[in-house]
Design a protein around this nucleic acid. Structure first.
Lengths: 133, 133
DNA sequence: CAGAATCCATCAGGATACTG
DNA sequence: CAGTATCCTGATGGATTCTG
């Protein structure tokens, strides 16, 4: 059994008044991941370009998530005092370290997308049969 | 620039009617991560042990999340028809592949916890100063 | 023990309008 | 352009009760 690190992870995730969990969640949530990846790949990137590049995000959530990422030191916000204003967002070095983990996760999803779809179908069909009995 | 994979990730995350994003989110959310890690580390694990091992989780969310993970083929549910009932949960092979990515993420959080805390403090102090001006 | 079902509060988050 | 402010709704998720 891979008793080694897993146990550490499991314990670690509960240490400190859940600061760990808060950080973890704030980084892996839907919008954060996409913003970070875009800032890494196409950074410095402007507000409007982010908005256009992330299907389904509202102006409000983009702003809120950007502020949170900025507050955590993952995104650097640069204001160019021009008219009209120009603001650019860049991934910090700390944020760039996330790329690998995100890649892994992304690859995992790709690898098993079909498996998961099939599992869902099987599960749902079983439920139907049970309900029909 | 690490233009290579990032761009792929960025595009991939938007392909298919967001199935990708759905799967990604369902796997990285707060409760799923902890359940998967526990199932890997201490698998086969019972309902009540999960409940006790995950601080703050409600019975409802544990049930709901377990069902979702089971539906996606990440957790295998085994019922022992005894009295009182005994149900055990195990991580599937597909789920076990997530361990690495979760480890990386966990290590990242650990590495930068202090940096993030400091960044937050700086950010908040700046906000206070601006407000006071 | 391992849930299912129900009820209810909170809040994430969308839509829209306004502004420096 | 890059937001902020406001309003409002649906989903999330907690607490509790009931059962095989």
């Amino acid at each position: 059994m891979s008793q080694s690190y897993s146990d550490v992870s499991v314990q670690v995730i509960h240490s400190e008044p859940c600061v760990f969990r808060d950080i973890f969640v704030s980084v892996t949530n839907k919008w954060s991941v996409q913003i970070i990846l875009l800032a890494i790949a196409r950074g410095p990137i402007r507000f409007t370009e982010l908005e256009r590049s992330i299907p389904g995000i509202s102006r409000r959530m983009l702003t809120v998530t950007l502020r949170q990422l900025e507050r955590n030191g993952l995104i650097v916000r640069t204001v160019h005092p021009t008219v009209p204003p120009k603001v650019e967002y860049t991934a910090s070095d700390v944020a760039r370290e996330l790329e690998n983990a995100f890649e892994q996760l992304g690859a995992w999803v790709e690898r098993h997308r079909e498996f998961i779809a099939a599992a869902q179908e099987t599960y749902d069909n079983e439920r139907v049969e049970v309900a029909a009995s």
